[in-house]
Amino acid sequence: MTNTESLLKMIEDQQRQINELKNLMINKKDDTKIPDKGRNEADVIKDLRKEIEELRTDLRCVESLYNDVQGQYNFFFSKIYLKMNDRLYDVDRSWQNSLLLYGIKQDSNCAYESPDCTIAKVREVLQQDLNMRRDIQFFRVTRIYTGPDFLGSKPISVCFVKWADKEEVIRKKNMLKNKNIQVEEDMSKAAKLRRKQLEKLMKAVKSQLPEKKCYFKYDKLIVDTDVYIYNEMTSQIERLPKKIFGSQTNLQEF
């Protein structure tokens, strides 16, 4: 039982005693004293009323303290919630610049290669095999040691600083077929779920309007010039008001 509930119960008990004493006063026809240390009914009622008022004051203090604590908790929680939402949003957006590279061999003489070695191997593929001679910047390059091997080695997760660099790798990924290297987008779990919902729309469009050009850009579906997203808040697919023209449009702006 909480403090507030205990105080309320005490007030109810005191009020019941007052009512009982009032009934006694009405029913008595003489000045008989009740056995409470020689005090008459009026004195006892007066004392009880004083105690009730004190209890009510204590109750108001407890409720005020509770409201203050609750208000501080709500304020603190809302700040954390907003910060976590912002952080998750930033993390999810960073996945949009990420790719998984399969088939880049790791050193056979060591179980775990150094990060510098992994970056050097990725740069070599970009420069030698994809003819991307400029200095490509990365947020992170990590070989993923958990999970099974694929194409004889562990995959590498590459997060590019520029979204355009990632898109260029995707456009040129067919150039890596003869190197037995595969490239695919490294999507977050939430993005995969959004894309799965959009795949249903793409199948419907393709079956009814086969002349339409449909393709994915991360977790967005492009149908000719229209851009569709899956809204997790409403659990519905929505068409964005903006249209996409040409291959230079950055979909992160949508």
Rank of each mutant, 00 (worst) to 15 (best):
W163E: 09
K173F: 11
Q137P: 09
L176K: 12
C110E: 13
A164T: 13
L59E: 03
S207W: 03
L130C: 06
T249H: 15
Q137W: 11
V122H: 12
D92T: 04
R171K: 09
N178W: 05
K173I: 03
P148A: 11
R143N: 01
K22L: 01
K173V: 04
R195E: 01
D68N: 13
R39G: 02
A204N: 06
P155Y: 10
M202S: 04
L130F: 06
S64K: 15
L251C: 07
N3R: 11
K192N: 01
P155S: 07
Q14I: 07
L240D: 09
S188N: 00
K206W: 03
R143D: 06
Y230I: 11
W163Y: 12
N250H: 07
P148M: 07
V169K: 05
M233N: 15
L55H: 02
R16W: 01
K22F: 00
I222H: 08
D219T: 07
Y215G: 03
E5Q: 13
Q182S: 09
A190D: 00
E53A: 03
V169W: 12
K37A: 01
K172S: 04
S6R: 10
V183I: 06
N231D: 04
G147H: 05
R56N: 09
E54M: 10
E63H: 04
S98G: 14
L21Y: 03
K200I: 13
M202T: 00
R60D: 03
S6L: 04
